[in-house]
Write a protein that binds this DNA or RNA. Structure first.
Length: 427
RNA sequence: GCCGCUGUAGCUCAGCUAGGUAGAGCGGCUGGCUGUUAACCAGUUGGUCGUAGGUUCGAAUCCUACCGGCGGCGCCA
């Protein structure tokens, strides 16, 4: 008797046939003559019935919620079963008898976070993790189709990548090092060999942010591209988003709908995305009586107000120099502006930042001094402008922020199996 | 860094305003029930109320400090 997936039975592939399934008891209901075991495996959930005259009745009585089991029986359609199919059990074997499972119907956010290692078994987390996996697959597919080469940047770093963000320090054989906040500087080095590179890697931020859109460890999708300009950058970025969203609609419809996420929003992601300059955005916001002046960075309220207008992903570009990092290239015809662009979505705000990198050695040094950064820390990075510098662009996209938006998650912590936040690092 | 909220049985909460040594539902256990759908019905089992002080004849309730958790802003992806 072959081991089959529960989803296969629910899809009607084994109607009337003898099957074996392996999984865990999800729910249990008992009546005088029948025990109903709701069993889950990685693929789905199905009801199994055990009758009094079955020798397995005693095993079924013993079986507790979350016990692991092997079930042999007959798959059949039954209108009375949730999902329309069930297994009439011939033989039930308990592999691991579970103790009383702590998660029951009433559960608080705090409790579920404490038992995260067990909550991952829930149908909801199962679905989110599947979509996460697929989004990663689509990301890799997209970049490879576009000729990008995947590279592996370091996690231990000696100098900061971003100006503003806070680094996690650590002891490294007696020296002070940091956990990376972005692979960008290292990707920039790699384009001189490979031209088009990308990575999907963790980034660590010690910002003391307490919001539904911050993690201290998150996964960063970062491409870097030699001989490319701002137009190329925005183009590839919107194409990536469109590709991920359209493939998700196509391949993950069941998961997205089961999660009660708005699939029409994903379908609506078409290119080109709306684009607005920073200066236009400021004028727009001032007309709405929001308290912001040219030269200030957007607050969350500002981002929300802009996002409401567009209803989907959109770009803001050409920012004032003083609110962006040292490596951003200044507009040659307006030195007050840098060629930087953020991609924003409703509710979440920024999901990506990117731009043209400063490729002129003198301009870069000027910016490093302007921001009082230590020149010697960036010596290797400046080398990249000494030896055959090229115009190049790149961006960083937060995977979990993207998923939070795509799946309408209430909190970014559900986009990653073991979230790390300012107060949460166990389990 | 600033602001707000919160901590009572394994879980979800009530009780606290006007102090008199804890109550419900879920879960667990026992029994009942002709297929259940987060089954239902009955009984039963669970806690000294985050921690440490203080006020008081008496504190879960009032005061102080500390610890834990959640969210908002700022910052960021």
């Amino acid at each position: 008797m072959p081991v089959v997936t529960i989803q296969g039975i629910l899809d009607g592939k084994h109607e009337g046939k003898s099957v074996t399934v392996r999984g865990w008891i999800y729910r249990k209901r008992e009546s005088k003559k029948t025990i109903f075991l709701v069993v889950r495996d990685a693929s789905g959930i199905i009801q199994c019935t055990v009758k009094t005259d079955n020798p397995s009745w005693i095993e079924a009585e013993k079986a507790t919620i979350e016990s692991s089991v092997i079930i042999k029986g007959t798959a059949r359609q039954d209108k009375r079963a949730p999902g329309g199919y069930e297994i009439a059990v011939d033989k039930l074997s308990i592999i691991g008898l579970a103790e009383i499972f702590p998660i029951t119907q009433d559960k608080s956010e705090e409790f579920l976070r404490n038992v995260r290692h067990l909550w991952l078994r829930s149908h909801r987390m199962n679905l989110i993790m599947k979509v996460r996996s697929e989004v990663l697959r689509f990301t890799h597919e997209f970049f490879r189709k576009e000729g990008f080469i995947e590279v592996s940047p370091p996690m231990f770093i000696s100098t900061a990548c971003e100006g503003g963000s806070t680094l996690f320090g650590l002891k490294y054989f007696g020296r002070d090092l940091y956990l990376t906040q972005s692979a960008q500087l290292y990707l920039e080095a790699l384009i001189y060999s490979l031209e088009k590179v990308y990575c999907v890697a963790p980034s660590f931020r010690a910002e003391k942010s307490r919001t539904i859109r911050h993690l201290s460890e998150y996964w960063h999708i970062e491409p870097e591209w030699a001989f490319a300009d701002m137009e190329d950058l925005m183009h590839i970025e919107e194409n990536l988003l469109r590709y991920i969203c359209q493939k998700t609609v196509k391949n993950c419809r069941r998961e997205v709908e089961s999660l009660d996420a708005d699939i029409s929003k994903l379908k609506a992601v078409k290119t080109p995305f709306p684009r607005i300059t920073y200066t236009e955005a400021i004028e727009n916001l001032m007309a709405k009586d929001l308290k912001i002046k040219w030269g200030e960075d957007f607050g969350y309220d500002d981002e929300k107000a802009l996002a409401e207008e567009f209803g989907g992903p959109f770009f803001v570009y050409a920012y004032p120099r003083q609110i962006k990092a040292f490596y951003c290239k200044t507009h040659r015809d307006n030195p007050e502006l840098v060629m930087s662009t953020d991609l924003l979505v409703p509710r979440i705000g920024e999901i990506s930042t990117g731009g043209v990198r400063e490729d002129d050695k003198e301009e870069l040094l000027k910016r490093i001094r302007e921001l009082s950064l230590k020149e010697e820390d960036y010596d290797w990075y400046i080398d990249l402008r000494r030896y055959g510098t090229v115009p190049h662009v790149g961006f960083g996209l937060g995977l979990e922020r993207l998923l939070t938006w795509m799946l309408d998650l209430e909190n970014i912590i559900d986009a990653i199996p073991f979230p790390r936040t300012i107060r949460r690092f166990y389990p």
